[in-house]
């Protein structure tokens, strides 16, 4: 069997295959539910119900989607330029640390503190990715390895900070940071709605990234470097400088996930603030085909599966791990569908 390139794939192929991938994911989920002893239709129904069936469920999904939009954008921006940032998790945590430091230590007046926290987070996350990127451009060190491994380094660093310098003296011995003062908390987007402005910021960032990529000179460079770095270099583009700028933007976006979780949701920093949002961001970005506006949709989809599966497992007794398998199979099917939308399988 071989793959043969299709020069101009038709619309049916480009849209039908991803739809088929989604259908296959649902089938896998139904199969898993049956194996776990549930009624497949009920389980699927309860996942949908739990994710979007009530106002509370929908808000929960939006809240869960917020950090995923940020990390998804971070990954999408970097991957578009073929900078393989697997370190959104580390950038998220460093952004959270910077948020807490500024929020509790700066003593800035009320209206300034939130922008300062966000700026500090962006800088921290950008610098976090700058190191691996310089190692890549200067010495050719593979950034997949460095960014991935730095996730563990940063997680341990956060653990140390929470047991040491940043430990909350009032925390009854729990490894957590002091809480942010009220003026350093992100306000809710509407009165009575349990949805903070982090979500609004995420939407603005998605639009901003789209604008950057589609309409600016830097965005053109980023896409060119990602699509063919050799041709970009030949044409005169400063490839390394473009990668560095990409790294600062990508790291900054991932760090905003940490900022938004601390300032919008939790109010303080703990070592479990992210249940792998950095890694899930990769899934979100891939499902969105690296399109920044698509990231919003796919983050909502992924968040919905998590929230829905949690709720379903409480009722149906089917483990919520089904959500992880669902996402993994959705990604695999989608990757296969994308390949097949540009290639056909030929026998012989």
């Amino acid at each position: 069997m071989r793959l043969e390139a299709i020069e101009a794939p038709g619309l049916a192929r480009r849209l039908g295959l991803p739809a088929a991938a989604l259908a296959a994911t649902v089938l896998v989920a139904a199969g898993l539910a049956a194996i776990a002893g549930g009624n497949p239709l009920d389980v699927l129904g309860q996942i949908v119900q739990g994710a979007a069936g009530s106002k509370f469920a929908r808000l929960e999904t939006l809240n869960r989607a917020t950090p995923l939009i940020f990390t998804g954008l971070a990954v999408a921006v970097a991957f578009r330029a073929r900078l393989w940032n697997i370190g959104a998790e580390a950038q998220l945590y460093l952004g959270a640390v910077a948020t807490v430091v500024i929020g509790t230590q700066s003593g800035l007046p009320g209206p300034l503190v939130i922008p300062a926290m966000a700026a500090a987070a962006v800088v921290a996350g950008g610098l976090m990715l700058l190191g691996p990127t310089l190692l890549k451009t200067r010495l050719g060190v593979d950034e997949v390895v460095t960014t991935l491994l730095l996730n563990f380094v940063v997680l341990l660093l956060v653990g140390y900070l929470l047991e040491g310098p940043m430990k909350d003296p009032m925390g009854m011995g729990w490894p957590k940071s002091p809480s942010l003062p009220a003026e350093a908390r992100l306000p809710r987007m509407a009165e009575g709605l349990r949805l903070h402005w982090g979500f609004g910021l995420a939407l603005i960032c998605a639009a901003g990234v789209w604008l950057l990529q589609a309409r600016t000179t830097l965005g053109f460079e980023m896409r060119a470097v990602g699509a063919n770095a050799r041709a970009a270099r030949f044409a005169g583009m400063p490839v390394n400088a473009v990668l560095v700028k990409t790294a600062l933007i990508s790291g900054g976006l991932a760090a905003l996930a940490g900022f938004s979780e601390v300032a919008g949701m939790k109010g303080n920093l703990t070592a479990d603030i992210s249940p792998g949002y950095g890694y899930t961001g990769i899934v979100v970005a891939m499902l969105a085909l690296l399109n920044p506006l698509g990231v919003v949709v796919s983050a909502l989809f992924v968040a919905g599966i998590f929230v829905g599966a949690d709720s379903m497992s409480r009722q149906a007794g089917v483990p919520s791990y089904i959500a992880d398998i669902l996402l993994a199979s959705a990604l695999l099917f989608m990757v296969a569908a994308l390949k097949l939308s540009r290639f056909r399988i030929v026998r012989g």
């Binding site: 053109f220 896409r223 060119a224 699509a227 063919n228 050799r230 041709a231 970009a232 030949f234 044409a235 005169g236």
Partner: peptide, 17 residues
């Protein structure tokens, strides 16, 4: 591989330099 970016359209390729 060097003179053009295959996935870019003609507009993008015409202004590469």
């Amino acid at each position: 591989a060097t003179g053009a970016i295959a996935d870019f359209d003609l507009t993008g390729n015409a202004m590469l330099e």
